[in-house]
């Protein structure tokens, strides 16, 4: 099985550089090709990194919960699903943090502050903290079975927060702008939408490669733990 792991890891890690190059091309389009916004000027270009990063965070957290639920339903594939959920939550944590960081960098020139206790920002912070709780819980639970059970439950809890984050700008009065592209009559021009879509696709592909790399690394790590326990 380790040979299969090596094959899987090598195959996916080879795709990392092409996926990164694709992402760099999409970023180049966002920074240099697309026109300037009439209200915000050039600083709006952060949208091409902030929105894909936030959507990827949502995607991987929801997928982690999906893997967790599937693992509970199909007991046979519980271990496999736990590994998948673990790798997905890893990405969800990093991308939630990046959504907060890029949002903060964008907030400074547009709102005048790095941080505000606004519903969207606060709920994203809670989502990030729940993801951190997943890792803390896993690291402090020595028994592998209870580690898996508690991890899966926290993965599901993290996903419960995703719709709260997403709809927070519609539910509460928020400093954060409402959805620009999803709602009808959005104010963004078509070229901005197109470049954003290209960035989203590139970011999803890149995170898919990262997910497979992380999942294989977790599998190798668990393989080692299992071998040591069986000694």
């Amino acid at each position: 099985m380790t040979a299969q792991l090596t094959h899987t890891y090598k195959r996916w890690s080879r795709l990392f550089v092409p996926a990164l190059v694709l992402q760099l091309i999409a970023w180049w389009l966002g920074i240099f090709w697309v026109g300037t916004d009439k209200d915000q000027g050039d600083v709006y270009r952060i949208i091409f990194v902030h929105v894909p990063v936030a959507w990827c965070a949502f995607m991987w957290i929801i997928l982690a919960a999906g893997f967790a639920v599937f693992g509970f339903v199909k007991k046979k594939s519980f271990e496999e699903m736990d590994r998948s959920a673990h790798a997905a939550i890893n990405l969800g944590t990093v991308f939630s943090a990046l959504a907060l960081a890029t949002g903060s960098i964008w907030g400074r020139p547009t709102w005048g502050v790095w941080w505000d206790w606004d519903p969207r920002l606060t709920s994203t912070l809670v989502m990030f903290l729940v993801c951190c709780a997943y890792h803390v819980l896993r690291s402090f639970t020595p028994d592998i079975q209870s580690r898996r059970n508690s991890g899966q439950i926290v993965a599901i809890l993290a996903a419960v927060n995703v719709p709260i984050v997403y709809f927070s700008v519609n539910i509460w009065r928020s400093l954060h702008q409402p959805q620009t592209f999803v709602r009808r009559g959005g104010s963004a021009s078509s070229d901005i939408g197109l470049v954003l879509f290209a960035n989203l696709i590139a970011m999803i592909l890149l995170t898919l490669v990262l997910y497979k790399m992380r999942r294989t690394a977790i599998a190798a790590q668990e393989s080692l733990e299992a071998a040591r326990e069986g000694r």
Binding site: I46, V49, L98, A101, T102, I105, W106, R108
Partner: peptide
């Protein structure tokens, strides 16, 4: 600001 955002990611 743009380089800080893209660079951190």
């Amino acid at each position: 600001y743009v380089i800080a955002a893209y660079g951190s990611v």
